[in-house]
Simulated scan of single mutants.
Amino acid sequence: MQRWKLTLEYDGTNFAGWQSQSDGKGVQDTVERAIMAIEGELRRTHAAGRTDRGVHATGQVIHVDLAKNWAPFRLQEALNAWLRDLGPVSVREVEAVPDSFHARFSAQARGYLFRMVDRRPPLTLELGRVWRVSQDQDVDRMQEAANYLLGTHDFTTFRDADCQAKSPIKTLSRFELRRVEGVFGPEIQARVQARSFLHRQVRSMMGTLSEVGRGKWSPEDVRDALEARDRKRCGPVAPSDGLYLTDVFYDL
Protein backbone atom coordinates (compact mmCIF):
# COMPACT_ATOMS: atom_id res chain seq x y z
CA MET A 1 0.00 0.00 0.00
CA GLN A 2 1.21 3.48 -0.88
CA ARG A 3 0.06 6.54 1.08
CA TRP A 4 -0.99 9.50 -1.06
CA LYS A 5 -1.44 13.17 -0.15
CA LEU A 6 -4.17 14.78 -2.23
CA THR A 7 -4.96 18.50 -2.35
CA LEU A 8 -8.62 19.14 -3.13
CA GLU A 9 -10.78 22.00 -4.31
CA TYR A 10 -14.54 21.90 -3.87
CA ASP A 11 -17.69 23.97 -3.88
CA GLY A 12 -19.36 23.16 -0.57
CA THR A 13 -22.72 24.75 -1.39
CA ASN A 14 -24.67 21.51 -1.78
CA PHE A 15 -22.53 19.31 0.46
CA ALA A 16 -23.28 18.52 4.11
CA GLY A 17 -19.67 19.32 4.99
CA TRP A 18 -16.55 17.21 4.54
CA GLN A 19 -17.42 14.30 6.80
CA SER A 20 -19.14 11.20 5.45
CA GLN A 21 -22.93 11.22 5.92
CA SER A 22 -25.48 8.41 6.11
CA ASP A 23 -27.18 9.85 3.02
CA GLY A 24 -23.87 10.09 1.14
CA LYS A 25 -23.91 13.89 0.90
CA GLY A 26 -20.50 14.59 2.46
CA VAL A 27 -17.53 15.62 0.34
CA GLN A 28 -15.75 12.58 1.78
CA ASP A 29 -18.45 10.31 0.33
CA THR A 30 -17.95 11.77 -3.14
CA VAL A 31 -14.16 11.44 -3.02
CA GLU A 32 -14.33 7.87 -1.70
CA ARG A 33 -16.76 6.89 -4.48
CA ALA A 34 -14.22 8.09 -7.03
CA ILE A 35 -11.43 6.19 -5.28
CA MET A 36 -13.54 3.02 -5.17
CA ALA A 37 -14.15 3.34 -8.89
CA ILE A 38 -10.43 3.29 -9.69
CA GLU A 39 -9.27 0.92 -6.92
CA GLY A 40 -12.14 -1.56 -6.91
CA GLU A 41 -12.43 -1.40 -3.13
CA LEU A 42 -13.41 1.14 -0.49
CA ARG A 43 -10.41 3.16 0.75
CA ARG A 44 -10.94 5.43 3.71
CA THR A 45 -9.72 9.03 3.47
CA HIS A 46 -8.51 11.31 6.27
CA ALA A 47 -8.75 15.10 5.98
CA ALA A 48 -6.81 18.00 7.46
CA GLY A 49 -10.07 19.67 8.50
CA ARG A 50 -13.73 18.75 8.67
CA THR A 51 -15.25 21.71 6.86
CA ASP A 52 -18.88 22.40 7.77
CA ARG A 53 -21.97 22.36 5.58
CA GLY A 54 -21.64 24.94 2.82
CA VAL A 55 -17.94 25.70 3.44
CA HIS A 56 -15.71 25.65 0.37
CA ALA A 57 -12.09 24.66 -0.12
CA THR A 58 -9.25 25.47 -2.48
CA GLY A 59 -6.57 23.70 -0.45
CA GLN A 60 -8.13 20.88 1.56
CA VAL A 61 -5.57 18.11 2.15
CA ILE A 62 -6.41 14.44 2.60
CA HIS A 63 -4.46 11.22 2.69
CA VAL A 64 -5.43 7.77 1.50
CA ASP A 65 -3.66 4.41 1.19
CA LEU A 66 -3.98 2.78 -2.25
CA ALA A 67 -3.02 -0.71 -3.36
CA LYS A 68 -2.49 -0.19 -7.09
CA ASN A 69 0.80 1.05 -8.46
CA TRP A 70 -0.18 4.55 -9.54
CA ALA A 71 1.92 7.25 -11.16
CA PRO A 72 0.96 10.62 -9.62
CA PHE A 73 -0.27 12.13 -12.90
CA ARG A 74 -2.35 9.03 -13.76
CA LEU A 75 -3.89 8.96 -10.30
CA GLN A 76 -4.87 12.62 -10.52
CA GLU A 77 -6.35 12.18 -14.00
CA ALA A 78 -8.27 9.05 -13.04
CA LEU A 79 -9.82 10.61 -9.96
CA ASN A 80 -10.80 13.81 -11.75
CA ALA A 81 -12.35 11.82 -14.58
CA TRP A 82 -14.75 10.23 -12.09
CA LEU A 83 -15.28 13.34 -9.98
CA ARG A 84 -16.52 15.31 -12.99
CA ASP A 85 -19.74 13.27 -12.86
CA LEU A 86 -19.95 12.85 -9.06
CA GLY A 87 -19.81 16.41 -7.76
CA PRO A 88 -18.00 19.76 -7.76
CA VAL A 89 -14.71 18.37 -6.43
CA SER A 90 -11.30 18.50 -8.10
CA VAL A 91 -7.94 16.97 -7.22
CA ARG A 92 -5.43 19.79 -7.67
CA GLU A 93 -2.25 18.01 -6.54
CA VAL A 94 -1.10 14.44 -5.87
CA GLU A 95 1.99 13.42 -3.93
CA ALA A 96 3.31 10.10 -2.61
CA VAL A 97 4.16 10.43 1.08
CA PRO A 98 5.56 8.13 3.78
CA ASP A 99 3.24 6.12 6.03
CA SER A 100 4.08 8.46 8.90
CA PHE A 101 2.25 11.32 7.17
CA HIS A 102 -1.24 12.11 8.47
CA ALA A 103 -3.33 14.84 6.83
CA ARG A 104 -4.74 16.00 10.16
CA PHE A 105 -2.13 15.24 12.80
CA SER A 106 0.93 16.20 10.70
CA ALA A 107 -0.49 19.65 9.89
CA GLN A 108 1.43 22.56 11.38
CA ALA A 109 -1.12 25.26 10.52
CA ARG A 110 -4.30 25.90 8.59
CA GLY A 111 -5.32 28.98 6.66
CA TYR A 112 -8.82 30.21 5.84
CA LEU A 113 -10.17 32.92 3.56
CA PHE A 114 -13.45 34.65 4.34
CA ARG A 115 -15.07 36.72 1.60
CA MET A 116 -17.79 39.32 2.07
CA VAL A 117 -19.33 42.13 0.04
CA ASP A 118 -21.13 45.19 1.40
CA ARG A 119 -23.75 46.17 -1.15
CA ARG A 120 -27.51 46.54 -1.35
CA PRO A 121 -28.22 44.60 -4.59
CA PRO A 122 -28.65 40.83 -4.18
CA LEU A 123 -25.92 38.50 -5.45
CA THR A 124 -26.29 36.55 -8.66
CA LEU A 125 -22.99 35.20 -10.00
CA GLU A 126 -21.43 34.89 -6.53
CA LEU A 127 -24.51 33.60 -4.73
CA GLY A 128 -23.44 30.96 -2.21
CA ARG A 129 -19.76 31.83 -2.50
CA VAL A 130 -19.54 35.13 -0.62
CA TRP A 131 -21.41 36.71 2.32
CA ARG A 132 -23.42 39.76 1.34
CA VAL A 133 -24.09 42.37 4.02
CA SER A 134 -26.28 45.31 3.08
CA GLN A 135 -24.52 47.89 5.30
CA ASP A 136 -21.21 49.56 4.41
CA GLN A 137 -18.31 48.05 6.38
CA ASP A 138 -15.41 50.03 7.88
CA VAL A 139 -12.53 47.65 7.19
CA ASP A 140 -9.99 49.68 9.18
CA ARG A 141 -12.10 49.39 12.35
CA MET A 142 -12.65 45.69 11.66
CA GLN A 143 -8.88 45.21 11.44
CA GLU A 144 -8.40 47.13 14.68
CA ALA A 145 -10.83 44.75 16.36
CA ALA A 146 -9.26 41.67 14.74
CA ASN A 147 -5.89 42.64 16.20
CA TYR A 148 -7.27 41.91 19.68
CA LEU A 149 -7.85 38.32 18.56
CA LEU A 150 -4.26 37.71 17.45
CA GLY A 151 -2.08 35.55 19.66
CA THR A 152 -2.98 32.91 22.23
CA HIS A 153 -6.35 33.27 23.95
CA ASP A 154 -9.24 31.38 25.46
CA PHE A 155 -11.74 31.63 22.58
CA THR A 156 -14.77 30.33 24.49
CA THR A 157 -16.77 33.37 23.32
CA PHE A 158 -16.24 32.31 19.69
CA ARG A 159 -16.71 28.58 20.30
CA ASP A 160 -19.82 26.82 18.98
CA ALA A 161 -21.93 24.99 21.56
CA ASP A 162 -21.36 21.70 19.70
CA CYS A 163 -17.56 22.10 19.58
CA GLN A 164 -15.77 18.90 20.65
CA ALA A 165 -12.28 20.38 21.08
CA LYS A 166 -10.64 19.52 24.39
CA SER A 167 -9.54 23.10 25.02
CA PRO A 168 -10.84 26.54 23.95
CA ILE A 169 -7.30 27.91 23.89
CA LYS A 170 -6.04 28.60 20.38
CA THR A 171 -3.31 30.75 18.83
CA LEU A 172 -4.09 32.97 15.85
CA SER A 173 -0.91 33.84 13.97
CA ARG A 174 -2.64 35.85 11.23
CA PHE A 175 -5.84 37.86 10.94
CA GLU A 176 -5.71 40.32 8.05
CA LEU A 177 -8.65 42.12 6.46
CA ARG A 178 -8.54 44.24 3.33
CA ARG A 179 -10.79 45.55 0.63
CA VAL A 180 -9.86 44.19 -2.80
CA GLU A 181 -11.14 44.35 -6.36
CA GLY A 182 -12.58 40.90 -7.01
CA VAL A 183 -13.55 39.35 -10.34
CA PHE A 184 -17.12 40.61 -9.97
CA GLY A 185 -16.45 43.85 -8.10
CA PRO A 186 -15.15 45.13 -4.75
CA GLU A 187 -15.12 42.71 -1.83
CA ILE A 188 -13.63 42.36 1.65
CA GLN A 189 -11.27 39.48 2.24
CA ALA A 190 -10.10 38.19 5.61
CA ARG A 191 -7.13 35.82 5.90
CA VAL A 192 -6.91 33.85 9.15
CA GLN A 193 -4.26 31.33 10.17
CA ALA A 194 -3.74 29.08 13.20
CA ARG A 195 -2.55 25.60 13.97
CA SER A 196 -6.17 24.61 14.52
CA PHE A 197 -9.55 26.24 15.06
CA LEU A 198 -12.60 25.67 17.22
CA HIS A 199 -15.88 24.65 15.62
CA ARG A 200 -17.26 27.66 13.70
CA GLN A 201 -14.64 29.93 15.24
CA VAL A 202 -13.87 31.82 12.03
CA ARG A 203 -17.55 32.37 11.24
CA SER A 204 -18.20 33.51 14.81
CA MET A 205 -15.34 35.99 14.67
CA MET A 206 -16.32 37.32 11.25
CA GLY A 207 -19.94 37.84 12.25
CA THR A 208 -18.77 39.76 15.28
CA LEU A 209 -16.31 41.87 13.27
CA SER A 210 -19.12 42.79 10.89
CA GLU A 211 -20.87 44.41 13.86
CA VAL A 212 -17.78 46.57 14.24
CA GLY A 213 -17.69 47.27 10.51
CA ARG A 214 -21.21 48.71 10.51
CA GLY A 215 -20.63 50.74 13.67
CA LYS A 216 -22.79 48.78 16.10
CA TRP A 217 -19.75 47.56 18.10
CA SER A 218 -16.46 49.27 18.87
CA PRO A 219 -13.15 47.42 18.47
CA GLU A 220 -12.88 47.44 22.26
CA ASP A 221 -16.23 45.62 22.49
CA VAL A 222 -14.59 42.69 20.67
CA ARG A 223 -11.71 42.73 23.15
CA ASP A 224 -14.17 42.71 26.04
CA ALA A 225 -16.21 39.91 24.50
CA LEU A 226 -13.08 37.79 24.07
CA GLU A 227 -12.00 38.39 27.67
CA ALA A 228 -15.49 37.52 28.96
CA ARG A 229 -15.08 33.90 27.80
CA ASP A 230 -18.84 33.72 27.38
CA ARG A 231 -20.56 32.43 24.24
CA LYS A 232 -23.47 34.78 24.91
CA ARG A 233 -21.12 37.72 24.28
CA CYS A 234 -20.44 36.60 20.68
CA GLY A 235 -22.01 38.58 17.86
CA PRO A 236 -24.03 36.97 15.05
CA VAL A 237 -22.40 33.97 13.37
CA ALA A 238 -21.56 34.62 9.72
CA PRO A 239 -22.94 32.14 7.17
CA SER A 240 -20.79 29.45 5.62
CA ASP A 241 -21.07 30.97 2.12
CA GLY A 242 -17.95 33.10 2.39
CA LEU A 243 -15.61 30.62 4.07
CA TYR A 244 -12.83 28.74 2.25
CA LEU A 245 -10.14 26.37 3.56
CA THR A 246 -7.21 27.59 1.47
CA ASP A 247 -4.00 26.25 2.99
CA VAL A 248 -2.68 23.45 5.15
CA PHE A 249 1.00 23.66 6.07
CA TYR A 250 3.33 20.71 6.72
CA ASP A 251 6.99 20.09 7.45
CA LEU A 252 7.72 17.67 4.61
Rank of each mutant, 00 (worst) to 15 (best):
A71I: 02
K166I: 00
V91H: 11
S196M: 06
N147A: 10
T45M: 07
Y148S: 12
P72T: 06
Q108M: 09
R110I: 00
S90F: 08
V139G: 08
Q21M: 05
V94M: 08
Q164D: 15
V130Y: 02
R110S: 04
R104K: 13
H56D: 15
G111K: 05
I169C: 06
A190Q: 07
F184P: 02
A161K: 13
N147K: 10
L6E: 02
L252R: 08
L75Q: 01
E32R: 09
G128N: 11
V222M: 03
L66F: 10
E39N: 04
W82Y: 13
D85G: 00
R214W: 05
A71R: 13
D160S: 07
A190I: 03
N14I: 00
S204D: 04
C163W: 05
E126D: 14
R129C: 10
T246W: 12
F249P: 00
T171Y: 07
L172D: 08
T13G: 08
C163Y: 04
Q60S: 15
R179D: 05
A48T: 12
L177F: 11
R129L: 09
N147Q: 14
A165N: 14
Q28Y: 02
P168Q: 04
V97D: 02
R174P: 01
L75H: 04
G17R: 03
K166V: 07
Q189K: 13
P219W: 04
G235F: 00
G26C: 08
D247G: 00
K5M: 14
R44S: 15
E144W: 02
P121G: 05
L177M: 12
Q143L: 05
L177T: 03
R129N: 11
V94E: 11
K232I: 00
A225G: 11
I35K: 12
Q19G: 07
R132M: 07
V91R: 10
Q135M: 09
L8E: 01
C234M: 04
D160L: 00
A67H: 12
A71H: 10
L123G: 09
L243Q: 09
A109C: 05
L79N: 06
R223Y: 01
G235P: 03
R231M: 06
L86H: 11
E211M: 06
F175K: 06
R200P: 05
D85E: 12
A48Y: 11
A81K: 11
A145M: 10
R141T: 03
K166P: 04
Q193A: 13
V55S: 15
V192P: 12
V130Q: 07
L150G: 09
R74M: 10
K170M: 10
G185Q: 07
G87R: 10
V237R: 08
K5E: 05
R84S: 15
T51V: 13
K5G: 04
R50L: 10
R84T: 14
N147P: 03
D23N: 15
W217A: 01
R191Q: 07
A109P: 03
A71S: 13
I62G: 13
E32Q: 06
N69H: 14
L75Y: 03
V192D: 10
L42C: 06
Q108E: 14
V183M: 15
L127C: 04
E227Q: 14
R191L: 08
R115P: 01
E9G: 06
D154F: 00
V192M: 13
G24L: 07
D251G: 09
G182Q: 03
W4Y: 09
R179N: 07
Q2F: 05
E181P: 00
V97C: 06
